[in-house]
Simulated scan of single mutants.
Amino acid sequence: MYAYFLIRHLDKEWRKILRKMIIIGLSGLLIGLGINLFILPFHLLEGGVFGIGLLFNYLWDFKIGLTIICVNLPVYVLAFKLDRSCFFNSLYGTLITPILIDLLIPLSGIVHLPILASASVGGLFIGVGTGLMLRYNISPGGVDLLALLLSKHFAINAGFIVFFIDSLILASGLLLFKDPKLIYSLFTIICVSVLIAILTSFKSISLYPR
């Protein structure tokens, strides 16, 4: 009898782990596709660590994924001190997402859309990917992890926190590059923030059976 319940418990835990890994993989893939197919071709910006990674890529041709991992380090030190479960849950997302972003770089330029459509569709991909992670207390890191920590401790919707910080990053990009087309990045940031807000507002509705 004890062995039976132990097997049932282990099966349940393995199902949770498998579901989490599927969510991380799918979310990282969506974020990587959104950045490489729709954001990079027009040299647009996104918010958070993705936006910082893009800025470093445009300025010095740094690898986006590698920059994201480096920028994430201070936030992860904070997460480790404040919320260990959040830290360990998000660690996989932070490692897998940047790797997928760099692996999918060869896809940049194969989709041709007007700049407004590209900015919006890219935001939809990134927003769904990030929102799915945050919904399950996972994060691709950086601003999203910081938003997750703040939303858990201060009952503020993660989407609003992300939008505020992303707007600051966009303003920095406009000051650095003085390129009017960067204003289209605002559509990306709005789409990302709205989808994150939607996907994290109804956590009682599970996307997968528990």
Rank of each mutant, 00 (worst) to 15 (best):
Y4W: 12
Y4C: 06
F5V: 09
F5Q: 15
R8P: 02
L10D: 05
L10T: 11
K12M: 11
K12I: 07
W14N: 09
W14F: 14
L18A: 11
L18N: 04
R19N: 12
K20N: 13
I22G: 03
I23N: 00
L26K: 00
L29Y: 07
L29F: 14
G32Q: 05
G34T: 09
I35P: 08
L37K: 10
I39W: 09
L40E: 13
P41R: 01
G48H: 06
V49R: 13
V49W: 10
G51R: 01
I52K: 11
F56Y: 02
Y58N: 11
W60S: 09
W60A: 14
D61W: 13
F62K: 05
F62M: 12
F62E: 04
K63H: 10
G65K: 00
L66H: 04
L66S: 06
L66R: 12
I68A: 05
I68E: 05
I69F: 10
V71H: 06
V71M: 02
L73P: 03
Y76I: 01
L78K: 00
F80Q: 06
K81E: 04
K81W: 14
K81F: 14
D83P: 05
R84K: 15
S85G: 04
F88I: 11
N89Y: 01
N89M: 07
S90I: 14
L91N: 06
G93D: 06
T94G: 15
T94S: 14
T97E: 05
P98Y: 11
I99N: 02
L104A: 08
L104P: 02
I105G: 05
P106E: 06
S108T: 03
G109S: 04
G109F: 09
G109K: 02
P114E: 08
P114I: 01
L116C: 08
A117R: 02
A117M: 12
S118Y: 08
S120I: 13
S120R: 04
S120C: 05
V121Q: 07
V121D: 04
V121Y: 01
G122R: 02
G122F: 01
G122Y: 05
I126M: 09
G127I: 00
V128R: 00
V128C: 03
G129H: 03
T130K: 10
M133H: 08
R135I: 10
G141P: 04
G141I: 05
G142V: 14
A147E: 00
A147M: 00
L149P: 01
L150S: 02
S151C: 03
K152L: 13
K152S: 13
H153Y: 13
H153D: 08
H153T: 12
F154N: 09
A155G: 07
I156Q: 06
I156L: 15
F163L: 11
I165D: 00
I165W: 07
A171V: 13
A171K: 07
S172I: 13
L175V: 14
L176P: 04
L176S: 04
F177K: 12
K178V: 08
D179Y: 09
P180C: 01
K181C: 07
L186A: 15
L186V: 15
C191V: 03
C191E: 10
V192E: 10
V192Q: 02
S193L: 09
V194C: 08
L195G: 06
I196G: 00
I198T: 06
I198S: 07
T200K: 00
S201H: 15
K203D: 08
L207D: 03
Y208V: 08
P209N: 15
R210A: 15
